[in-house]
């Protein structure tokens, strides 16, 4: 029973922040300053999600050292994305770097 309430509630709030904005703002024109600000939404939100997961994988303190596999893999992904602009290649090489680095750590190479 509780699962149904949970999933129903999550569904409502998820749809509730997407659709009404889409419906209202497609009828009323958006003021120019707000439109300019919206350009910065995707980069700011993505950076805010990514950076802590890479620099603070345990969620508590900065881990800037080579035995932080997410940091190494994240850096590799940034370089691949910057050079190639290819999303799929970035994902594949990023994950391979993560697994490779974890393997090295696990086997005592680092």
């Amino acid at each position: 029973m509780n699962e149904y309430i949970l999933i129903g509630g999550m569904m409502l709030v998820t749809f509730g922040v997407r659709y009404p904005v889409l419906a209202l703002l497609s009828k009323v024109p958006l003021p120019e300053p707000i439109f300019r600000a919206l350009k910065y939404v995707p980069p700011a939100v993505l950076a805010a999600i990514i950076v802590p997961k890479v620099l603070m994988p345990s969620g508590e303190e900065l881990q800037i050292h080579i035995s932080n596999a997410p940091l190494i893999a994240g850096t590799a992904a940034v370089l691949v994305a910057w050079r190639s602009k290819n999303l799929l290649l970035t994902i594949v090489l990023g994950m391979l770097t993560l697994w490779g680095w974890q393997w090295l750590i696990h086997n005592g190479a680092l």
Partner: peptide
């Protein structure tokens, strides 16, 4: 971590102006 590398692949091409760099750094 696949979500993180996906978001990296989406973020990097967006960073094209100095204002975006500042926005990303402040958010980070």
């Amino acid at each position: 971590f696949a979500m993180v590398v996906t978001f990296i692949g989406m973020l990097v091409p967006l960073v094209r102006s100095r204002a975006t760099v500042i926005s990303v750094l402040v958010a980070a």
